[in-house]
Design a protein around this nucleic acid. Structure first.
Ligand SMILES: [Mn+2]
Ligand SMILES: [Mn+2]
Ligand SMILES: [Mn+2]
Ligand SMILES: [Mn+2]
Lengths: 218, 218
DNA sequence: AATAAAAATTAGCCTTACCTAATTTTTATT
DNA sequence: AATAAAAATTAGGTAAGGCTAATTTTTATT
């Protein structure tokens, strides 16, 4: 049996693994979970014993096939529950993540598949993140950010890279959601600020950090 | 903050309190949860400190007003989730209890009310147990059992007193569910066995234990 | 009232999952 | 290569929530 903490570590390692090429170190995991590196070292030992990860000083932490499978299922459940909370229970964008953080740990062999069917097999969660399929396959994940768009270019908001309440509430205030059309008017070379037009409305300026947190489809 | 274990103890004490007149002792709680009485004594200390229960050697364990409120909310969530699992995800009668046992602990202020609304404010869970209302009120709970019916009498199955898979699967085999009409043909005085007719079908014999596990409406 | 049985409590121990502080190892920088 | 800084690890500790075994208290039975 896999515990709730072990599941959270697996999910964290899985997420860190998305930034390809980056080695997953104990400190990276500690930072990501807000835990102490010493605690991470303890858990690395446990997950290694359970054969869910392999830890090599040179290569860092890597998920085994089983670890990958377990992590993917947790992510699948997390994202499906987010769709449920938003679409069926009427929660807002910025309220669902924390609840899904708990729901993702509910254990039942057929739960994810039943939920998936009930929701109509959604491909993306409300933040635009791809929902792993029952077979482990994953819909395309967007990687271009608003900051990558060249001046004058148009794009469509595909996903958010940051799911904090503060970012999501800011987006709401700016009237931006998944699917919104944005034109990048100008890049300020001084600090990377971006002048944009949201759905053709008047020009607004946002920070570089903002631009890098918004994933888009060109 | 109230922990998962504390919640399970509160719910257990709440349930034991339904059998009115019965004093709630550490051993009763231990038996009900499958824990050791020593562990129960530890938890009684913790819940007393948190002012969720009062323990008096003479009167046994009793919920405080706050304890009662907390326990009722857990029961409300448990039963609402059971309705969701059965009606929306298509689980069977005997599969939902264990999953709801986990779901009942998901913490969010508006979750129970949103789920209640989404499900159409159901009054009873799939086992016929009343779902506490948002205001704490409780629909009528059935207390007469099939074993209390007099020979020749008709009744309607209102709830199950036992939610074990073995009982629920047996009911399924007998084609009995909530709402089924039963006529009690005869009581065998030797061992309390009951001869019944289910929905007017041919006579069948069930045990006294069976009769005492089925709550009915006359 | 004396005794036996049952219930409750205490003492001491275990595991999980965290922590801080100290130490060792690795990586960068001069 | 020497040194400083950063990262990783070890050592030792805590709180929650269990356990068993021993002891004390309460309740029943003679
Ligand atoms: Mn989680
Ligand atoms: Mn999401
Ligand atoms: Mn529970
Ligand atoms: Mn039920």
């Amino acid at each position: 049996m896999i515990t709730l903490s072990e599941e959270n570590y697996l999910k964290c390692i899985y997420r860190l693994g998305q930034d390809k090429g980056q080695k997953i170190t104990p400190t990276a995991i500690a930072d990501s979970l807000g835990n102490n590196p010493a605690s991470v070292v303890d858990m690395i030992r446990k997950l290694t014993e359970k054969q869910l990860i392999i830890y090599d000083k040179k290569k860092g932490v890597e998920l085994t096939a089983q670890g990958q499978k377990d992590a993917t299922l947790i992510v699948r459940k997390h994202r499906l529950w987010e769709v449920f909370l938003l679409e069926k229970l009427g929660y807002h964008w910025d309220e669902i993540h924390d609840i899904a953080e708990e729901l993702e740990h509910i254990k039942d062999d057929s739960l994810a598949d039943r939920l998936d069917k009930f929701l109509g097999f959604p491909e993306y969660d409300p933040h635009g993140d791809p929902i792993p399929k029952a077979n482990g396959k994953m819909p395309k994940r967007y990687s271009t950010t608003l900051a990558d768009v060249k001046a004058g270019g148009f794009c469509r908001v595909a996903a958010v890279k940051d799911t904090t309440s503060s970012f999501l509430q800011y987006l709401q205030k700016l009237d931006i959601s998944i699917g919104t059309k944005i034109q990048l008017i100008e890049k300020i070379s001084f600090d990377g600020s971006l002048v944009i037009s949201i759905n053709g409305a008047e020009h607004k300026t946002v920070s570089q950090k903002f631009g890098e947190s918004l994933l888009i489809d060109i």
